[in-house]
């Protein structure tokens, strides 16, 4: 998974490791980000401190949304604590499990490793935004029909990763599906059913 707006293409995990495990939030944005997102409420990232507060705006599930965040706040905690979007789960807090997967500009990212200030001005899509006009998205339907869930804790992340896959590759092979979902863990062991669900959705069954 790539950082949503990191033109250097450095993976976020490597990037954060470089930034001493991501705790020193003021350095996280670094010089890779050239653009100043004034319109979205965030000043030049290079000048930020971890405790600075910002009012950011972004598009969440198709709706213009504002949030007050500190530089150090992750997108995940902003979604869960402030915007009551609790479908996205916190599991590993480490970029390992994919339970916190959301789409930023259509690309899957781990929201536990993404700073809220980084999505200012961008499109964010969470599990809550998948239904359209009160109807389940075909991928959600397929997860239900193929029993791609047990406890359901990994499910929102799995659904989001599957959506990102099918948006980019509508007819994935089994190996491509496995690769696309390889950043998502399920402890209950629903993988086989999830592969079937992706296949079902891809065939529009």
């Amino acid at each position: 998974m790539k950082h949503p707006e990191d033109p250097s293409g450095v993976s976020r995990r490597g990037f954060l490791k470089g930034a001493s495990l991501g705790v020193a939030a003021s350095t996280v944005l670094g010089s890779a980000r050239a653009e100043v997102k004034e319109a979205s409420g965030v000043p030049d990232a290079r000048l930020l401190k971890a405790a600075d507060e910002h009012e950011i705006s972004f598009v969440l599930n198709g709706e213009k949304t504002k949030a007050k965040v500190r530089t150090g706040h992750t997108l995940l905690e902003t979604l869960r604590d402030q915007l009551d979007k609790t479908g996205t789960k916190l599991v590993c807090d480490f970029g390992t499990c994919g339970a916190c997967t959301v789409l930023v500009d259509g690309k899957p990212v781990n929201s536990c490793l993404t700073l809220a200030v980084d999505v200012a001005g961008h499109q964010v899509e969470t599990i809550e935004g998948m239904e359209q006009n009160g109807k389940l998205h075909p991928i959600q339907e397929a997860f239900c029909a193929e029993d791609g869930l047990q406890c359901g804790f990994c499910t929102p992340g799995m659904v989001m990763s599957s959506k990102a896959l099918l948006d980019a590759n509508p007819k994935p092979s089994l190996d491509e599906t496995k690769a696309a979902l390889s950043g998502n863990l399920c402890r209950c062991g629903t993988y086989i059913n999830i592969f079937r669900a992706v296949e079902r959705a891809s065939k529009g069954k």
């Binding site: 479908g87 029909a145 029993d147 869930l149 929102p156």
Partner: peptide, 15 residues
């Protein structure tokens, strides 16, 4: 299909 599947695929299930 599980009777609560929809809650889980939509993020509505509250843990």
């Amino acid at each position: 299909q599980k009777v609560d599947a929809v809650f889980k695929v939509t993020g509505q299930a509250k843990y």
